[in-house]
């Protein structure tokens, strides 16, 4: 579908969702590079209502034929909606369309948050170096706020099945090991050794069942030069589980970006202290290690599955090859590091 066709069909869809609007137009529709799990576009929606011309900057996220991570967009939409207006900054969700009639694939539309950065590489340029400690405090405080939230009070248990506290760890491990079993294109001796260690050394039961963002890392939030965060993005792997899972993902060494610091920002201990203060939970060192290693396995499963989607021909976009080539060995080295083998 050409950009012009997409804009036209999106405008027609918007008109059906805004009965009071007239002369609905989609302007300046442009694809945002990246977005391995959804095709992402920014655009301006313009319309006339009550005799007044109005405009809003929005984001369209459309499912590709095959994605890096197969997820339920309803779950993602519910997670964003649950946290909108809370201490966890997220864009406002506008529409969720699960049918394929309007734009050939399911999609969602959300508010665009403008004026901030998401790219990790910018963080290590001169303008941002002084913000690292403040940004780390904000980052792990927000992650702690996600952990502190009550998913049942937020109504998220309606779309995300809650596990028993003692079942969280192996439910996740079973799921991602299955992805590896199904998608691996070559043997993975380091990842398989990690899985055996995880099974032989289970963590304690979760202190609580919380919301797990599933991909909370540098690169998935919008930041400024003062250490502020203005939008937490990419909730497509959100689920209910042990809040330590998110902490472990944020400490996965691949997100250090070749710096020996959590998220490339601060020592792990500092990040953990911010998280504990905000969440009201304890980060038992052995449990944190288990969840960090688990998240290395999960990461490997994600990189492997992107390779599989490309190999099988479901998605031949170059973004699917980049993590497969650029992350697998780094993830193996992260596993060795967490297991004290490097």
């Amino acid at each position: 579908m050409s950009s012009a066709d997409l804009a036209s069909r999106l405008a027609a869809y918007a008109a059906t969702r805004m009965p009071a609007a007239r002369e609905v137009e989609v302007r300046d529709l442009s694809r945002i590079s990246g977005g391995a799990s959804r095709q992402t576009y920014r655009f301006r929606l313009a319309w006339t209502e009550g005799g007044e011309r109005r405009e809003r900057r929005l984001i369209l996220r459309r499912d590709p034929p095959a994605s890096l991570i197969d997820t339920e967009r309803r779950v993602e939409f519910a997670a964003y909606s649950a946290f909108h207006g809370s201490k966890v900054p997220v864009p406002e969700m506008i529409w969720l369309e699960e049918g394929s009639e309007a734009l050939d694939q399911p999609f969602s539309v959300a508010e665009e948050i403008t004026g901030f950065e998401a790219a990790p590489a910018l963080l290590w340029t001169a303008s941002y170096l002084a913000s690292h400690e403040a940004l780390a405090r904000t980052k792990w405080t927000i992650l702690g706020e996600i952990a502190r939230a009550d998913p049942f009070a937020l109504g998220l248990d309606a779309v995300m099945p809650p596990p028993e506290p003692e079942a969280c760890a192996f439910r996740e491990l079973d799921m991602w090991e299955k992805v590896l079993d199904e998608d691996q294109a070559e043997p993975l001796p380091i990842t398989r050794a990690a899985i055996r260690w995880l099974r032989a050394n289970p963590p304690p039961a979760a202190q609580k069942i919380g919301v797990v963002h599933g991909d909370f890392r540098t690169g998935n939030f919008l930041y400024d030069r003062q250490g502020g965060i203005h939008g937490v993005l990419d909730w497509e792997m959100a689920h209910l589980g042990d809040p330590l899972e998110d902490l472990g993902w944020s400490l996965n060494p691949v997100w250090n970006f070749k710096r020996n610091l959590a998220g490339g920002l601060v020592p792990d201990a500092v990040a953990i202290a911010h998280w504990e203060a905000a969440s009201g939970l304890r980060a038992d060192p052995a449990a944190v290690r288990w969840w960090t290693l688990f998240n290395c396995v999960k990461g490997q499963a994600i990189w492997i599955s992107s390779a599989r989607a490309w190999i099988d021909g479901g998605n031949r976009e170059p973004i699917m090859v980049l993590p497969a080539w650029g992350m697998q060995n780094a993830q193996d080295r992260a596993i060795l590091k967490v297991m004290d083998r490097l």
């Binding site: 380091i190 992350m327 060795l336």
Partner: peptide, 16 residues
């Protein structure tokens, strides 16, 4: 050997 295998696969353009 597993550690050496990751050294053989190191690339300067790796993302992490």
């Amino acid at each position: 050997e597993l550690r050496r295998s990751t050294e053989r696969r190191l690339m300067s353009g790796a993302l992490a």
